[in-house]
Simulated assay, not measured.
Amino acid sequence: MSDDVRNALSALSNISEHWQPHRLASINDYDLKVVKLQGEFVWHTHPDTDELFLVLSGELTIQLRDRDVILGPNDVFVVPKGVEHCPKAAAEVQAILFEPQGTVNTGHVGGSMTSNLRELG
């Protein structure tokens, strides 16, 4: 089944836009997404699901209303469901997200930064 092997770093090299997740793989009812992040996102929540961030490169700050969580390479953080958060990155970050299929990146707020989940070719 070597045709099913996916390389996260290779997939990231094909992504040109920030804040636009791409599905790398699916497991049960969850998607493993790769994404490049830079700048500040929007404050939002995911009312029905937790959201896992795994930073591969760079430094990502996940702003919460009561504190900032700073992630570096190989760090993992789970934003609990319903917790308002706003990711930001001064320089480009490459990351993996793990969340249920159908989760919208802007959560409950929508807007111009909402992504249509892209498939990697």
Score class of each variant (00 low, 15 high):
Glu84Asn: 03
Ile62Glu: 11
Glu92Lys: 02
Pro87Ser: 04
Glu40Trp: 07
Gln20Ser: 12
Leu37Arg: 03
Leu71Arg: 05
Asp66Asn: 15
Thr114Ser: 14
Val55Glu: 06
Ser115Lys: 01
Asp50Tyr: 11
Ala8Pro: 07
Ser2Cys: 08
Leu64Gly: 10
Val104Asn: 08
Glu84Ala: 13
His108Ser: 15
Asp48Tyr: 12
Leu37Trp: 10
Gln20Asp: 09
Leu52Trp: 02
Trp19Thr: 00
Leu117Ala: 06
Val83Asn: 10
Phe77Ser: 05
His85Ala: 05
Pro87Gly: 05
Val34Ala: 07
Thr61Ile: 14
Arg6Trp: 05
Gly82Asn: 07
His108Gln: 14
Glu119Pro: 00
Leu9Gly: 02
Pro21Phe: 05
Val42Ile: 03
Asp50Thr: 06
Val83Arg: 12
Leu117Arg: 09
Leu56Gly: 04
Ser26Val: 01
Tyr30Ile: 03
Val78Ile: 15
Leu56Asn: 05
His18Tyr: 14
Val83Ile: 15
Glu92Ala: 03
Glu99Ala: 12
Gly107Met: 06
Glu99Met: 03
Gly111Cys: 06
Glu84Tyr: 01
Glu99Cys: 06
Pro47Asp: 14
Ser2Pro: 05
Glu59Gln: 15
Leu52Tyr: 04
Glu17Asp: 15
Arg118Gly: 14
Gly121Trp: 04
Glu51Ile: 01
Gln101Val: 03
Glu119Asp: 15
Arg67Ser: 14
Gly39Leu: 07
Arg118Tyr: 03
Val79His: 11
Leu24His: 01
Asn14Glu: 13
Leu32Asp: 00
Gln94Arg: 11
Asp3Glu: 09
Thr45Asn: 10
Ala8Trp: 08
Glu40Ala: 15
Val76Gln: 03
Ile96Asp: 00
Thr61Gly: 07
Ile96Asn: 01
Ser115Val: 04
Ile27His: 14
Ser26Leu: 00
Asp50Gln: 06
Lys36Tyr: 06
Ala90Phe: 09
Gln38Leu: 05
Glu40Asp: 13
Val79Ser: 08
Ser13Met: 01
Ser16Asp: 15
Val79Tyr: 10
Val109Leu: 08
Val42Glu: 10
Asn105Gly: 07
Asn74Gln: 10
Glu59His: 13
Ala11Tyr: 04
Gln63Lys: 15
Ala11Gln: 02
His46Trp: 08
Leu120Asp: 03
Thr103His: 06
Trp43Ala: 11
Ala8Val: 13
Val93Tyr: 10
Pro80Ala: 11
Ser115Thr: 10
Val69Phe: 12
Leu120Gly: 03
Trp43Pro: 05
Met113Glu: 08
Gln63Cys: 13
Ile27Phe: 14
Asp3Ala: 06
Gly121Pro: 15
Val34Trp: 10
Thr45Ile: 12
Val42Lys: 00
Leu117Pro: 09
Glu92Phe: 05
Leu52Gly: 02
Ser13Glu: 12
Leu64Asp: 11
Ile96Val: 09
Val76Ile: 13
Gly58Glu: 11
Leu32Pro: 02
Arg23Met: 05
Asn74Glu: 13
Tyr30Lys: 09
Ile96Met: 06
Pro47Ile: 05
Ala25Ile: 00
Thr45Ser: 13
Asn116Leu: 14
Leu24Met: 01
Asp31Tyr: 11
Gly72Tyr: 09
Trp19Met: 00
Arg65Ser: 14
Val55Asp: 09
Val35Thr: 10
Gln38Cys: 13
Thr114Ile: 04
Ala25Met: 09
Asp75Lys: 02
Ser10Arg: 14
Ala89Leu: 02
Gln63Thr: 07
Pro47Cys: 04
Leu32Gly: 05
Leu32Asn: 02
Asp4Trp: 10
Lys88Val: 04
Thr45Trp: 06
